[in-house]
Design a protein around this nucleic acid. Sequence first.
DNA 1: GCGACCTAGATTGCATGCAATCCAGCCCGC
DNA 2: GCGGGCTGGATTGCATGCAATCTAGGTCGC
Lengths: 232, 232
Amino acid sequence: MSQASDRVYTALRAGILDGRYGFGDRLGEIEVAADLGTSRTPVREALRRLGSEGLVEVLPNRGARVRTWTAQDLEETYELRAVLEGLGARRAAGQVTAEVVDELAALAAEMVTVDPSLGHRPPGDFADLAALNARFHAVIVGAAGSDRLAATLAGLVQLPLVMRTYHRYTPAALARSHAHHHEIVDALRAGDGAWAESVMRSHVLAARAVLLASHRDGATGTAATDPEGQAS
Amino acid sequence: MSQASDRVYTALRAGILDGRYGFGDRLGEIEVAADLGTSRTPVREALRRLGSEGLVEVLPNRGARVRTWTAQDLEETYELRAVLEGLGARRAAGQVTAEVVDELAALAAEMVTVDPSLGHRPPGDFADLAALNARFHAVIVGAAGSDRLAATLAGLVQLPLVMRTYHRYTPAALARSHAHHHEIVDALRAGDGAWAESVMRSHVLAARAVLLASHRDGATGTAATDPEGQAS
DNA sequence: GCGACCTAGATTGCATGCAATCCAGCCCGC
DNA sequence: GCGGGCTGGATTGCATGCAATCTAGGTCGC
């Protein structure tokens, strides 16, 4: 992490995710290097890395730009996540420990207590909810015990982060999301892989529906001033 | 492709897949650069790229080495492929054209005619079979029409290539593989997504069983002198 | 007036020099 | 004899110079 290359990667990634760099913005090597006080070499490496993760597109001899997302990109990504997170939940159900289930139950419960739509936070303040949700999903993927699955998913979760997903949820959709979380915990505690997989798939596909609906309503998803707020 | 970085990437990838570089071999930047007649910069880029695809592991300040595969790596990778290629088959069933189905049928038929175990090729000559099989799967993924799925799978198919999979198939397993191919074609022609998905999953999981069995029998999978021969 | 060509500036891609880090072997002390 | 520390060699990581490529603007011809 003291490596310059990693610093540049982290900085660029954060800049894209919180909207400092908007969709389609050019990322010139010289410009970025100057901004971050380093040389072009680590910047090149970071850009290639971000390119392989799908956050930026690099054109030969023409530099890199922040990738723009179409409705189809959203749909494909969430379809993949539904399948892969479903697989993760199924695997987790077969080997998760009681301690981890308890942790997940605590996370699910806490998410309800920080839901702005339920009056526990100022309206629009989804920061805590998003963080807890991310952790909830991360714990399940971890409990699946497949490094390969975790790595594959890591390359897909990037996209939702820039969309400030939670801001698009209606209170009803949020309530459904909470219900899903609790149901997933129950399925895992029961050791029922098929159940856990099924609920997880529903959970992700429901998130996809929310995003697609809001996408159709003209919200282009240009990440604005708000760093957090991704869901599912 | 005239780009030096791409040339190095292709050369290294080929070298790993056909066993010129064995599992665990060190890939020094200077050494590789000298071998390929270029400088260290494009070599570095190629190594990072191969690292993100899982073919080599790069350790900070310690260089890159060809990744070694455990039984668990095999299992996880094939589990992911089963799910993802199943998804691809399901999507393809809903939108594939008659022309593409005909092409797949032709590929499936031709695979039978080049099967060494059926006496149509010298024993052990799986080159044509492997090439046709790769094309068969690629056509289906293409027919699924999801760039994101194709990209995700591309990062997973790397592994089987080094294992010379087909050499481990028994004649009975090969016959089953052919039967799967024909059944997938039938399911696609019928537009039956659930059927196509199910058969494709069986197909990949059967391949996993072959690999795992042969892995247990002490075959470490160190790709030897034979460039081709991957299956499913 | 419009379009193709050409040139200039800028940017990426590659090569190479230098500093930081790591590993192996050796030496010294116990 | 054995273990810890240290030093030398080698290798990676970063910085920077140079060549190749691309884009933009203008100019010339029609």
